[in-house]
Amino acid sequence: MTHFAAVVLFALFASVVFGVTQRETPRRMIRYGIYCFVLFVAAAIVLSWLMFFIAR
């Protein structure tokens, strides 16, 4: 498994739990889940590039 696949899986599982537990209606659960998923993956990509440039 690649590191990116691990990040995506982590984001997926965590986002589903956050969406279901932190919102009350199904529509808002889905929206919040997608929002968390995008933030997880985007943050991982941004931080990865930051570390890449810091390490150079």
Binding site: M1, A6, L9, F10, L12, F13, A14, V16, V17, V20, T21
Partner: peptide, 20 residues
């Protein structure tokens, strides 16, 4: 529905952790 989603996510994460 909520229970199934939570169960699948948490079990999936735990099993993936063991598989890694």
């Amino acid at each position: 529905g909520r229970g199934a989603l939570l169960s699948a996510s948490i079990l999936g994460m735990f099993v993936m952790g063991l598989a890694m």
